[in-house]
């Protein structure tokens, strides 16, 4: 335990120091995206990994976070930090409204229901004029400051904000693993009937897990809106994005604390680098590579790449 704590401290230290080594915008951008997706994937891991409920609708929370922040900022001049909180509240509300009926469904039925919910959200936002419909929303350029959550001269502040978000997500995930909640969630995943007979309120704990998952995804939506300064339905709540979260977790190691982090460090550079270096000629190459990776992993090594680092663990 002591040793893995030191490895973790070293990992955080290296991450914190990397922007001092990389001065170009691109590597910094790449690392920001890695950490953003790692945070979201940790969120997915809580519902999909620990609890075993495969959600293909998590991008909806990302969209809610992004849109809530943007709408509050533009129409009421409210700082994105408050927008982030408001986004979390709405995302938790959505998680409960969606989860309440959907968690009664088993396996594939649940997975397809989450696809349906995600796609319904996408259709609504694409046709909703108040939020810019298909065109989306440009976040107004404001003076550079922490309270405005906008930094134009350098990516460094964004880098450390997303690093803080990642550490927060890891802390939340660690706390769940070590708490009673974590045991309940794993019991629900491994043996729902057994969990019920022990008096665990399955529906309630699934909703709690889904809400935590929603919060971790929603804050990423807020960050994305303020980082890219332009959001539209297909960049914030596309089905493919939800799928990518599951893929990242699967690649890294499902139900493992650092699985999503490992997955994001493999997956995001793969997609971003093929996009940059192969351009439109290489369109689809990244999809081919990671689809083969997940097929092979799902058949041969369901415990993911993380298991390579931890030999003893199964």
């Amino acid at each position: 335990m002591k040793k893995s704590l030191w490895v973790f401290v070293l990992f955080v230290g290296v991450l914190a120091a990397l922007p001092l080594v990389f001065h170009d915008p691109f590597p910094r951008h790449l690392l920001i995206m890695v950490m953003l997706y790692a945070t979201m994937s940790i969120g997915w891991n809580i519902i999909g990994g620990y609890t075993g409920q495969v959600s293909f609708g998590n991008a909806a929370f990302f969209g809610v976070g992004a849109y809530t922040t943007a709408v509050l900022l533009i129409n009421y001049g409210i700082t994105p930090w408050v927008g982030m909180l408001a986004g979390c509240v709405l995302s938790v509300g959505l998680a409960i409204i969606v989860g309440y009926p959907c968690f009664r469904l088993q396996g594939h039925y649940f997975a397809i229901a989450t696809i349906a919910v995600g796609e319904i959200m996408l259709v609504i936002f694409t046709n909703w004029d108040y939020v810019g419909a298909a065109v989306g929303i440009y976040i107004p350029i404001l003076e550079e400051s922490f309270i405005n959550f906008e930094f134009h001269s350098s990516k460094i502040p964004y880098y450390y904000i997303v690093l803080a978000m990642l550490l927060f997500a890891i802390a939340v995930s660690y706390a769940i693993e070590k708490s009673r909640l974590g045991y309940y969630l794993r019991a629900i995943k491994d043996d729902p009937d057994g969990a019920r007979s022990l008096g665990i309120d399955i529906q309630r704990y699934k909703l709690i897990a889904f809400s935590i998952s929603a919060v971790l995804t929603s804050i990423c939506g807020t960050f994305y809106a303020q980082y890219v300064l332009y959001i539209h339905p297909s960049s914030t709540m596309d089905l493919m994005m939800s799928i990518q979260l599951c893929i990242i977790v699967l690649i890294g190691g499902i139900g493992k604390l650092f699985g999503p982090v490992v997955g994001a460090f493999v997956f995001i550079p793969l997609t971003e680098l093929t996009r940059v270096y192969l351009g439109s000629e290489g369109q689809g190459i990244d999809m081919i590579i990671y689809s083969l990776l997940i097929i092979v992993l799902a058949i041969a090594r369901p415990q993911g790449l993380w298991a390579l680092f931890k030999k003893g663990e199964r």
């Binding site: 799928i243 999809m287 689809s291 083969l292 992993l297 799902a298």
Partner: peptide
């Protein structure tokens, strides 16, 4: 079930990528 979902999803992404 998780492995089954990921394999057929993998095929989906593979075919679209191709």
């Amino acid at each position: 079930m998780l492995s089954q979902i990921f394999v057929t999803f993998g095929v989906l992404i593979f075919l679209r990528g191709l």
